[in-house]
Every structure is written in C-alpha cells, then in structure tokens.
C-alpha cells in the first residue's frame, strides 16, 4: 500500500503540524511528572487514570506507563480505564446519535480515588461536563482532575484543565486533529 492516502491531509496547504511525535512524547513525560508531583507521596497510591474515548484512552495508557517508570514501579501499576460519555452528551438531539465506545472502570472502582480524566482536546468543555456526570454515577472519587494534550480555548462552560500539554489559540473555524499511533498509525497534532 502506498502511504499517499495517509498523508493526503497533511499535503493540504492550510494544514500545519503543531506537534510531532517527539513533542508529544515530551509532553506526556512532563504531564506524568506533574501528576506525580501534585498527587504527592500521600495520594499517589490512590491514582486512577480514566481516558475519554476515543483518543483519551491511549493517552491515559501512555501516562500510566510513564508514571510507573518515573516512580520506578514504587506505587505498582496505576489503574487505567476509559469512560465513554456518549450517553451523557447534551447535543445528541441536535447532532444525532453516534456509536458508543467502551467504558472500562478499573477493578476496585473509583470511590475515594484520585481520578485524572484524560482527553486529547479541550474545547467547549461539554465533553468534560458529560464525563463528570458519568463519573458521578460510577462512584465518588476523592478528587477529579483533568489532563488534556491540547487546550484550544472557546470554552462554553466554567471548566479548566489541571494539566495542559499545549495551549493552542485557534479560531472556531479551524480544526484540530490529534493523531495517535495506537489509532491512526502516527503521532501528530495538525491544525487546518
């Protein structure tokens, strides 16, 4: 198979790559360090990472791996899961139904845990609101924090991220496309 179709979009003259694979790797490392630092020795054992599908899932997996490396496995493996928010969306009526993604809550649940929600792009904040609603039904974490790879602004709700990979001022007309190896075969963030 020629690689041409994969790169067709990046040939688009308006598209520009804002993060490449190594930049994404460095961001994951930094956020992992920040999570460890903010949780502290006291709460590190309570850490649970929950990715928001689709691309929050692999990001949460990567963060968990790096946290395990940086703490030299001292805290054991960090529980990782996913929480699908489709059934909690407030725009189903206007934008139609869509297929659901997997929800995997780690064994032991989230009661009393230090939960970090992980998503690729923070935009209106509605996805995060839906995720908070979903979490409320699952249990009662001690703390919920939010980690995102890209914060592109244009919030419609009073929501902010605790860990931001990159602040990316955009216009509402632009599209921010995050690609991850696990899903898209390559690591990059493109704006077009």
């Amino acid at each position: 198979m020629p690689a041409a179709p994969l790169h067709a979009e990046s040939v688009d003259p308006r598209a520009r790559t804002v993060l490449d694979s190594s930049a994404i790797g460095r961001i994951i490392d930094r956020i992992a360090h920040e999570i460890i630092e903010r949780a502290g020795d006291e709460h590190l054992p309570e850490l649970t990472l929950l990715g928001i599908p689709t691309r929050g899932g692999p990001l949460a997996d990567r963060l968990a791996q790096r946290i395990a490396v940086f703490t030299e496995g001292g805290t054991g493996l960090v529980p990782v899961g996913t929480v699908d928010i489709t059934l909690y969306r407030d725009d189903l009526r206007s934008r139609g139904v869509r297929p659901l993604s997997a929800t995997r809550i780690p064994d032991g649940g989230i009661d009393g845990r230090h939960v970090v929600l992980v998503d690729d792009v923070l935009y209106s904040g509605r996805t995060v609101r839906a995720a908070l609603d979903a979490l409320r039904e699952v249990g009662r974490p001690r703390v919920v924090q939010l980690a995102v790879l890209i914060d592109r602004g244009h919030r419609e709700l009073p929501i902010r991220a605790d860990y931001v990979g990159k602040n990316l001022p955009t216009s509402a007309r632009e599209q921010v496309r995050v690609r991850l190896t696990e899903i898209d075969g390559t690591d990059e963030v493109v704006v077009r």
Binding site: L87, Y88, L100, D133
Partner: peptide, 20 residues
C-alpha cells in the same frame, strides 16, 4: 455493539440509570 457497551457501562453500578 451498542447493547454490549451499555452493558459494560452499567456493570457493577449501583445507580443503573442514564440521562440519555
């Protein structure tokens, strides 16, 4: 597939209710 995801999302939950 949707039924399976709903099953997974509600498994082990005390409040088996969705606002959809």
């Amino acid at each position: 597939d949707t039924a399976a995801q709903i099953d997974a999302a509600l498994a082990g939950r005390e409040v088996k209710k969705l606002p959809t």
